[in-house]
């Protein structure tokens, strides 16, 4: 009785496995297709300099000292330049919470990998825009 039950269980496992083999896989073709990122995704930041008031609250809120502020670098009336160090950033979102002037946001861009560590230190020019060179691989350009 129990031996027959064992064989039944084994057959059940094999049935599930064969069904798995012929069903569609769960994973994505990652570089060619990407998942949808929700609105609140805490990816890399974007700094809107028109709204910035150089209050420095983001720098104060940051737990890992990933943000550096340069108050002398002014484009508009009273803004400041932000330097982000993504080799330190933990994407906690405290800086975005701390900003009361709608000047700092997260973007859904999460693939930040670079060839070297220095390239992860974002200049003010890079942090103000999310446009960048699209990645190229085997003749195909994506994102």
């Amino acid at each position: 009785m129990s031996k027959l039950g064992v064989i039944k269980d084994i057959l059940q496992v094999l049935r599930h496995i064969v069904r798995q083999v012929f069903s569609r896989p769960f994973t994505y073709f990652y570089p060619f297709e990407d998942r949808e990122y929700p609105e609140r995704t805490r990816g890399r930041h974007i700094h809107i300099r028109e709204n910035c008031t150089a209050c420095g609250q983001c720098v104060r809120a940051c737990p890992v000292v990933a943000i550096r502020i340069d108050k002398s670098d002014r484009k508009y009336e009273k803004d400041a330049a932000l330097y982000f160090d993504y080799s330190r950033c933990i994407f906690c979102g405290l800086c975005v919470d701390a900003c009361r002037f709608d000047a700092l946001y997260h973007t859904p861009v999460v693939d930040l990998s670079e060839g070297s560590r220095d390239e992860l230190k974002y200049d003010p020019e890079r942090i103000e825009t999310i446009e960048r060179e699209p990645l190229e691989w085997r003749g195909r350009r994506f994102r």
């Binding site: 990122y37 929700p38 609140r40 995704t41 805490r42 933990i90 994407f91 906690c92 979102g93 405290l94 997260h106």
Partner: peptide, 12 residues
């Protein structure tokens, strides 16, 4: 978790 907080693991 990602839809709620924006992060998959370290939700804070």
């Amino acid at each position: 978790f990602e839809e709620l907080t924006g992060s998959r693991h370290a939700a804070s």
